[in-house]
Design a protein around this nucleic acid. Structure first.
Lengths: 197, 197, 197, 197
DNA sequence: AATGAATGAGTCTTCATTCAT
DNA sequence: GATGAATGAAGACTCATTCAT
């Protein structure tokens, strides 16, 4: 808002979040690609071209949001990972937290994840860095369980991806067999059972 | 080609397949939405508007292919399901067949699956019918295992979705921990272990 | 206009000319770059995008017109060059013809020539091919005069460029010292005098 | 830089020159219109809007530079014109000086001349005033030669324009027949020969 | 039956300029 | 005095679809 003063990196970031927050309903309704820069600008209450002071490109909006949201989930997962609890319990808590986050954000991450396939490799790489951090975190817990002898020796990263993916079955079905929580719990139970010695 | 003689539904279908086969490489390279009708027509060696004799709309192409490919996988899965083998073995075979099919088709189904999010609800419903058939087939085998007492009593449909989803972790990662076969095998093993009593 | 029938190369060319003819007044008034594709389309009585069936790019319009007009001048010059007249006379006639053409076309070529500086090298090369043909034609007549001993031995191409350039002084001044014809005649006279032995 | 103290007209002018000097490479590379105010400001190491303290409009930059450079050439030509040498010799020297200047400035004036066509009439008039001064200077020398009886009686202004224009043939060809100096010398020789009695 | 010319809506993006700080 | 955030207007171009031949 102040006119002659350069925006700090922080201002930029928070403004970016505001812009997206203002436009998120459009994107959820119609998809990202189908939402035009004009509409986003209108929703954000700014001129079409001011948008370009915050995002150099339409795709940057997508990258920004995915990075941002993945980071939030990762941060929350880190907190859980640090607790003094058995691996299985921490994994359960992380998945629940993840589910809660997804639902609170209307599955935004899942929806946008689909659109991210179109991004240029360079942008995909940036996104993947964030995803990897989350996967690694989960994988570390699994590895811990393996080392402690409470899990079978499997490839921890592979297993982590499998677990995280379970969320999709729970969230992204048009033929639910219960609440998302119930579906997820059952999936996690099968997974943990599968790791048990 | 035959003039004056209306095309049978079968001719139509096989022509549709030909058209898509001719254009599939474009779609794999650039994505479906990024491939224009003109390019598809050119690849298929026909005029832009002749395309509309086979697909009333661009989106119909997407729906057709997804339906078609899902149907093929389902048919092959049905054959395996009918074998006189223990449920666990049949599930393993189905997943392997599915993986082979995906790889033979360059993950087309996964790629297109992302694009399908944009289709209008009506089209999505049509696609889902096919998906359900496949899920139900897998679920039936799981249920059989449960009934025979070799699997724990879980919601079979939920479990089926979980198993099918495992393919994604194996296929769709930019940080593989082995061959797709190995990753899938491990995932299936964890799953089956998880169902074991 | 016919809808399902491919345009012959000739149709294309004549349609291109029509389009340009319809829009030339806009371009003369405001300059080429300042004239938008929409305006050109409107002037030509067609949809914005139909324009792109005739010119793949806005710049192509520029290239087309310059090539076309240069070709016309060259053709007329060829006719004069073939006459059985002394070199000096033929040169005078060519310059007069060129002047007439320029005036009949409102100096279009001069105006557009300025804009052509912005074209990408590839397009400039295409244009230059045409310009060279014209320059070479004039140079040949000069060389003829040199060979016949009625002109001093100068570099014919250099001299040709000089002569052709004289048109600019005559046409493109905001402080004329007579009619364009008079100014040109005097310039040509100085030039020919300068070549005389 | 000095705060509170208004800039003298001279400071303004020298600051303008500095700004342009800093940006000239951009303009030579991409053309004037293709260079944005932001880029010019960056090159000049100042804020976008500070530019507007020195040039009220982007076009003013163009006008300023053309005026400035034309003035420099004129000043140098004046020095030569004042020498006690035969008209023909002075004309030769002026043309050489002009060529040197052009080459030292990478033909900037020619390039910008093309862009100047777009300026509004008012600005063009300002530029033309400067051009006229230069033309008049050259014309005066020619007139002198005529009065002294060493040149044929031609319209001096017309001839001056013709001579100055020769530079273009020498400088602005993609198919040179020698060094620019050689081409120019030959052109000037033809011209002077053409004036000789 | 098959084709391609025609279209209008819509896309992202750029830019010179202003104005509040 | 100097700055950069904000903007509105505009621009080239693409595309799915229709329709006359």
């Amino acid at each position: 808002m102040p006119k002659g003063i350069p925006l700090t990196e922080e201002d930029l970031s928070s403004r970016r979040r505001e812009i997206f927050a203002a436009a998120v309903h459009l994107i959820l309704e119609k998809g990202f690609q189908e939402t035009s820069m004009r509409q986003i600008a209108e929703a954000a209450g700014m001129g079409k071209s001011s948008l370009y002071d915050y995002f150099r490109t339409k795709d940057e909006i997508l990258v920004f949001v995915i990075e941002e949201e993945t980071l939030i989930v990762t941060r929350q997962a880190e907190a859980i990972a640090a607790l003094a609890l058995p691996p299985a319990v921490r994994l359960r808590q992380i998945m629940r937290m993840h589910l809660d986050f997804m639902q609170a954000n209307k599955n935004l991450l899942v929806r946008l994840g689909g659109e991210a396939q179109r991004l240029k490799p360079e942008s995909q790489a940036r996104i993947n860095q964030r995803r990897y951090a989350y996967q690694d975190l989960v994988a570390a817990i699994i590895q811990e369980g393996i080392d402690q002898g409470c899990f079978r020796p499997v490839n921890a990263l592979n297993a982590a991806r499998l677990l995280i993916n379970s969320l999709l079955s729970a969230l992204y079905t048009s033929r639910p067999t219960g609440s998302a929580e119930e579906m997820l719990d059952e999936a996690v139970e099968i997974f943990l059972h599968g790791l048990r010695i």
